[in-house]
Amino acid sequence: MPTRSHTLVVQVEDHPGVLNRVMSLFRQRGFNVDSVAVGHAEAPGISRMTFVISGDDKIVEQVTKQLYKLLEVIKVNDVTGENTIQRELALIKVNANDRTRADIMRIATDIFRARFVDASPDSLTLEVTGPSDKIESLLTMIRPYGIKEVARTGLVAMTRGGGTGTLSIVRDAVA
């Protein structure tokens, strides 16, 4: 089975230690996590975790089922390849001088719609949001100027349209 990147949206009860339980499960079973983003969801007491994991479909199915075995896990959505909005935010500090500043600003704003949030005589800090591959491309483009620092939030995702997401695997359904 081919390995590809999957985006899982996991809704959990917001109890102490729940992130630890989820991460412990990934570690124990050898599932690879590429990115994690955690924050509050629409309902009080519910956190939303977005994981990007790589693996074949069988591994993702096993991850999903094992996640459901954790008491605090309420819902797991595999939103990969669905009609979803995927966004990540990155702060990037890049070397800049009088000679390069204009070029960097052009690349960042015209192509990637990044915003400048700070500047100093020898650097520029920009903020960019978008799907992860957009951030990757921006990084590739400005790498020649010398990147000093990168901070990325990890990916968050949401399905398009009026629905609240479809369950790819429901607890009591057949696999």
């Binding site: 959990v12 459901y68 009591d172």
Partner: peptide
């Protein structure tokens, strides 16, 4: 009340 725990006893 355990929102995340509902074992299935009766098969489909």
């Amino acid at each position: 009340e355990l929102a995340g725990y509902k074992p299935t006893y009766t098969p489909h």
